[in-house]
Computed example of a mutant assay.
Amino acid sequence: MNKYKKLILGILLDAMGYVSFVIPVVGEFSDIVWAPVSGWLMTKLYKGKAGKIAGVITFVEEALPWLDVVPTFTIMWIYTYVFKKEGKN
């Protein structure tokens, strides 16, 4: 997957994590479903040890109340393509 497509997808997935703030109380229950899904998606987008660690972090961040504001998918993209400078496409 092109790194910029991955960035756009990551931003969209981070936005989905913000949905729980749109509907107070009920939205927090959506995190019960979204937390494991987002963790799994992170491991599919970013392979290897870094992807597994990011998957766990994403799961925990989405599962705990009020931490949904952290854009973990976008942060992982920045870590991968800016700091580690992986992928030349």
Rank of each mutant, 00 (worst) to 15 (best):
V60W: 05
T43Y: 01
G17C: 09
G10T: 05
L45R: 13
D14Q: 10
K85C: 04
K3R: 15
I8A: 15
K44E: 10
V26P: 04
P24G: 03
M16T: 09
M42D: 03
A35R: 11
K3S: 07
F59Y: 10
W66T: 12
G48C: 08
V37I: 15
P65K: 10
P71V: 03
F21Q: 08
G87I: 06
G10F: 02
M16I: 08
G55Y: 05
L45P: 06
E62F: 00
Y81F: 15
I78H: 02
G55R: 06
Y4D: 05
Y79F: 11
A54N: 06
A15C: 02
L67P: 01
V33T: 07
V33E: 00
P36S: 05
T72G: 01
V70Q: 05
L45A: 12
E61T: 13
G55H: 04
Y46S: 03
I53E: 12
G51E: 14
F73V: 04
V33Q: 02
V56F: 10
E28I: 07
K88L: 14
V26K: 07
V70F: 13
D31E: 08
M42F: 07
M16L: 14
L7C: 00
F21I: 09
D31K: 14
I8K: 07
T58M: 10
M1T: 11
D31H: 13
A54C: 02
L7K: 07
I75Y: 11
V60D: 04
V22R: 08
N2A: 13
M1N: 09
F29S: 11
P24Y: 10
F83C: 11
P65I: 06
V69P: 04
I23W: 12
I78W: 02
M16P: 01
V69M: 05
K47G: 03
G39E: 01
V37T: 13
K84S: 07
K47N: 14
L9S: 11
V22C: 10
M76G: 01
L41R: 12
Y81C: 06
T74R: 07
V82H: 11
F21E: 08
S20T: 12
S30F: 13
E28N: 09
A15F: 11
M42Q: 15
S38P: 01
L12Q: 04
G87R: 07
F29N: 11
N2Q: 14
L45H: 13
G55L: 02
I32W: 10
